[in-house]
Design a protein around this nucleic acid. Structure first.
Lengths: 343, 343
DNA sequence: CTGAAAGCGCTTACAG
DNA sequence: CTGAAAGCGCTTACAG
């Protein structure tokens, strides 16, 4: 096995080392590695073998400088949102498979703060594209002209109305209808942070649905994603509110609502029925367990990244698949079309 | 204001552009920007002003190629662990403040799979250092010789025994002692995934503590971080187990245990008392609410990154501060030294 | 099918 | 205190 008769193996091998050892030019090595030039199969195989044997890996910085492409994508996330780790995982897989490096930036503060930060990162010129999972102002969403394209994964529905996406709230209508069919005549919505498209969509479906069915609504309460917000919403209801159906924007709000019901001596299900969203793990184990919507966050993350990639390549955006599915549990009592188990 | 009389402003300005406009050499620009050479205040200020005015930003790829430093750090995380978003946020802040770019890689599979992946990333030569929040085999933890240093944030305690770290389980002793003092004579531990140092540490403290106090132990059950595992643990207990104190390795396990108790008709607190860990948001809202340990994950993430940075710089590792604090709630009944509120 | 040469944008001895 | 020059490791017209 030919070993480089050079100086100490201190720095990693370069394409020049490969060329010298393989007895070809650096150009040929480059063509083999990038798969660009027309290289004879024999030469090609030989170069590959030599490269492999000395553990050659292209210097990405050098490549990036020549090609003027960073090969890097930024993903914006925030500290407060628990499900994002799964979104990130999905996005990361897709990005890496496409040959990109994905970096994550956590931003917080007001929506203006976050928008500024995103704008700043976009202007930095280090990224070929950006994806944000936290709400930002439309100003941050470039159309891909001068700055790199910035996509907001929380606003997909506004652009493409595709079913099955993260912010698709249509299953909430199934909740309200099933509950109404089971005899419920009074509803209340505990909303999430309305900066989120998903929170607005759930509220809107709720509002449209109670109106259409002609049932009573005690209003839209809540307004952030905390359990305490869900608790306060129920604590603020009049004493004669029950029987009431609580449509919460997610499971964390729902568990807060459940707690408040117990504190007020209201039974659940019975005086109060509750629905959540997200299928958080604990929801299957509360008393009563929570009826909810299972969301495939990892698939959502993958799809969001596929959308960004399609934008970069000027391709048609791929359609998303169904990411949501209702999980009926104890918190809605007998009110469900097709029963399914608890845990 | 002097505007470059050059060709269309297509590509971003380079240090050469700055030099030309400022009437100095590229060397001077570089010295000003890196703060290295001895440059007169006047020149310095002028260069800075020109650079600012044309929105100059150093090309990181070019800089990286010259300095042979990537300025990049990798952080390894996994899909299954919810608290990691806060760890990542803390780590990310510190890394950016230190001028590094932090990239996150999500790995999963067996511990061997994860170790392989970490090794592979380390060998890639793109990172100056790595930090992992998921367990890997010791083989992956380089000592910083040939490959970049790889630190495992899940194993801190094994190396430095510093109080207040993530895997510090000493507060578990407070739980057991307080419960024993309140009259409890029978305990059981629901362990987490024992690949995690934190899970092992909690189990070890539990074992040492029941032995020392001479109270009965129904054993160490569980073995992963899922609520179902907590539920099964309690479902497997003999009918005459109560009264029993359940020491769960985290809140998710604890909520599963609580659910199982209810399914068996055991009251909580009463027949069963339960402690958790992590202070997950839902824990304050379950019925009964969960006594737990609040962990400052963001501070833990910051500290983990500070440790990596200290290693890179050859400095003394900073000591961690106290990250943990017991939160007494309803699930332990009256058994606590100093009472505190529920929600 | 292959190679010599230029250049991406920076930093850093070295000389003055 | 400042500048001319070399070179980091690649890719890519261009010529053969």
């Amino acid at each position: 096995m030919p070993v480089p008769p050079t100086s100490p193996p201190t720095s990693p091998p370069t394409s020049r080392d490969v060329a010298r050892l393989a007895g070809v030019s650096q150009t040929t090595v480059s063509y083999v590695l990038t798969g660009k030039g027309a290289i004879s199969p024999a030469t090609r195989e030989h170069v590959l073998k030599v490269a492999e044997s000395i553990g050659y890996r292209p210097n990405l910085a050098a490549r990036s400088m020549r090609t003027r492409r960073s090969g890097r994508l930024a993903v914006i996330t925030g500290v407060a949102y628990e499900n994002q780790i799964r979104l990130l995982t999905g996005a990361s897989r897709v990005a890496h498979d496409a040959g990109y490096i994905m970096e994550t930036h956590s931003v917080d503060g007001t929506v203006e703060d976050r928008t500024d930060r995103v704008l700043e990162l976009a202007a930095g010129g280090q990224y070929e594209g950006m994806l944000t999972f936290v709400p930002v102002l439309p100003a941050a969403l470039s159309d891909g002209r001068s700055t790199p394209p910035v996509l907001a994964a929380t606003a997909f529905d506004e652009k493409m109305h595709s079913a099955g996406e993260l912010a698709d709230a249509s299953l909430l209508e199934v909740f309200v209808r099933a509950l109404a069919a089971a005899g419920h005549r009074r509803f209340v919505h505990v909303a999430g942070n309305l900066e989120f498209t998903s929170a607005r969509a759930r509220r809107d479906v709720y509002l449209a649905c109670v109106e259409q069915l002609g049932v009573e609504s005690l209003g839209v309460l809540g307004g952030d994603w905390t359990a305490e917000s869900g608790r306060q919403a129920l604590l603020g209801l009049p004493d004669d509110a029950p029987p009431v159906a609580v449509i919460a924007a997610n499971d964390v709000l729902a568990v807060g609502a459940l707690r408040a019901a117990a504190e007020r001596g209201w039974s659940a299900p019975g005086d109060v029925v509750v629905t959540g969203w997200d299928n958080a793990q604990f929801g299957a184990y509360t008393m009563p367990s929570l009826t909810t919507v299972d969301v495939d966050f990892q698939a959502a993350g993958r799809h969001a990244m596929q959308l960004l990639l399609a934008t970069l390549r000027g391709e048609e955006p791929p359609r998303g698949s169904d990411l949501q599915r209702i999980v009926w549990r104890e918190s809605t009592g007998a009110a469900h079309p097709a029963a399914s188990g608890t845990a």
